[in-house]
């Protein structure tokens, strides 16, 4: 089992190293990623929302739905911890009354 796990991890590593060969070089300003969508954010954030910090502008305006989903993730995590670790006595009383 252990050996199989090691072999699978190494195979995955080989595939990934093979795959990164065709990624653009690190720091290349002419690569697709910085030139396509990202340049719009940098060039327009200040005019669109008067926000010099581009990360904030993208986070809370252009991709606000992601941030909204992320907020929900945090609340879900808090809820999950409470659900797993605590139990509430008043609920039981309530359901007892209901079934009576």
């Amino acid at each position: 089992m252990r050996i199989l796990g090691f072999v699978l991890i190494v195979v995955l590593g080989v595939v990934l190293v093979w795959g990164i060969g065709d990624l653009p070089e690190r720091g290349d300003p002419q690569a697709p990623a910085p030139t396509h969508v990202a340049s719009y954010y940098i060039e327009n954030a200040l005019d669109d929302s008067n926000t010099p910090n581009f990360v904030t502008a993208v986070l809370a305006d252009y991709r606000a739905y992601d941030t909204f989903g992320e907020a929900v993730v945090v609340v879900t995590a808090a809820l999950a911890c409470l659900l797993i670790l605590l139990r509430r006595r008043e609920d039981e009383v309530e359901v007892e009354e209901e079934s009576r």
Partner: peptide, 21 residues
């Protein structure tokens, strides 16, 4: 990726903000 008046609005002057977000 924070706008600075010395550099101006050129896209090549700032790191890509989308992966950071």
């Amino acid at each position: 990726p924070v706008f600075s008046p010395e550099l101006g609005p050129g896209a090549e002057n700032y790191m890509n903000p989308l992966p950071q977000v």
